[in-house]
Amino acid sequence: MNTMITSPRHVSSGFKVDLSRGQRIDRVSSEWFSRPDDERYLSLSDLHRAVSARTERARVRTVETADIRVEATRDNAERLSLIVPGGREPVAPTHWSYGQLCSLVGAPANYMRQLPAPLAAINLQHGLLNHDAEMIKTLEMDDGRVELRAVTGPDYGRIWDRDLVAAVMSIAGNGTGDTIWKVPGVLDWSTMTHNPFVDITKDTTTLYASDRDVFLFLVDDTHPIEAGRLPNGQPDLYFRGFYAWNSEVGSKTLGIAAFYLR
């Protein structure tokens, strides 16, 4: 049987949806469930401001692994630091970059994190000195103290998180309704009614950024598309959406996915 699909139409209130049709996209819901408050943003401009600030404080260098020095002091037995060639200050690895360094020298990161910093420093230094010397690219950021955010291969092609957010802003504006693309509305599960017109809060936002990635999800839910009729005779409506992601520290590659959403 052929299904008649109509052009998108503007709505001014909520509309019924049928979740029994289509399939669940766990990627989007898992982001919503797992992100803490400090990784949630209420607009694309806020998100862009945050990721741009860290890009402006970033520094990229290419160094040889054997030239990196690992230090730990008795004054702070829980923290180690690195002396990277060309740097004036010690660099503190993040949880992510520490794991990358451990992987580079073949050391189990979880085990290394359980060791006192002086002992972990000895093991990591031994690995760097005895590992086949190779060039690596470091990503550092000065935010009061200098952090090592990433360790990648010398040819790693980095796409900055701010560039992805800026590209999305070119079509979605602020992501709050100033264009057709916006943070999704809310579904009332008791009535199966989707309401596109709700305030964006930390609980409802779909704009996220952490120290290792950025993820954003936007929809055009004020212009649903009719694809036939529901069993009760009401229009069967769905709307367009897309989500995009990136990591400038190497935890994932740039990507985008588009779909129709109920």
Score class of each variant (00 low, 15 high):
127 G>A: 08
68 I>F: 05
110 N>F: 02
13 S>V: 07
107 A>M: 10
9 R>G: 15
176 T>K: 04
34 S>Q: 11
154 P>W: 04
157 G>Y: 00
81 S>K: 01
257 A>Y: 15
137 K>W: 03
243 Y>T: 09
143 D>F: 11
136 I>R: 05
202 K>D: 05
187 L>M: 14
239 F>W: 15
60 V>E: 13
117 A>K: 01
245 W>M: 12
188 D>G: 09
204 T>I: 12
100 Q>V: 01
177 G>C: 02
80 L>K: 00
227 A>L: 06
35 R>Y: 12
205 T>A: 05
228 G>V: 08
197 F>D: 03
21 R>L: 13
24 R>H: 12
230 L>H: 08
87 G>K: 09
37 D>F: 03
116 P>I: 11
212 R>C: 02
135 M>Q: 10
231 P>N: 05
195 N>Y: 01
53 A>Q: 15
235 P>L: 02
103 S>R: 15
122 I>M: 10
80 L>N: 01
92 A>M: 09
223 H>Y: 04
213 D>A: 07
173 G>H: 02
128 L>Y: 00
179 T>D: 06
119 L>Q: 15
195 N>A: 02
72 A>L: 04
83 I>D: 02
120 A>H: 03
185 G>H: 06
45 S>C: 08
251 S>Y: 03
96 W>S: 05
66 A>V: 03
233 G>A: 08
85 P>D: 09
147 E>M: 10
115 L>H: 02
175 G>N: 06
122 I>C: 04
176 T>W: 01
251 S>A: 12
146 V>R: 13
129 L>S: 07
42 L>I: 13
256 I>P: 09
247 S>A: 07
184 P>D: 06
45 S>T: 12
214 V>E: 05
211 D>T: 14
243 Y>Q: 11
47 L>F: 10
243 Y>K: 09
138 T>M: 11
249 V>K: 00
94 T>D: 08
28 V>P: 03
55 T>F: 06
129 L>M: 08
246 N>D: 14
206 T>M: 13
133 A>T: 13
37 D>A: 10
151 V>R: 11
76 N>H: 03
13 S>W: 04
77 A>W: 10
73 T>R: 09
70 V>Q: 00
215 F>E: 06
115 L>G: 03
261 L>Y: 12
3 T>N: 03
130 N>K: 01
237 L>I: 09
143 D>A: 15
201 T>C: 14
253 T>D: 07
36 P>K: 09
67 D>S: 09
88 R>T: 11
144 G>K: 13
105 V>S: 06
183 V>S: 14
5 I>W: 07
79 R>N: 00
191 T>E: 08
243 Y>F: 15
252 K>W: 00
132 D>M: 11
246 N>R: 13
219 V>Y: 05
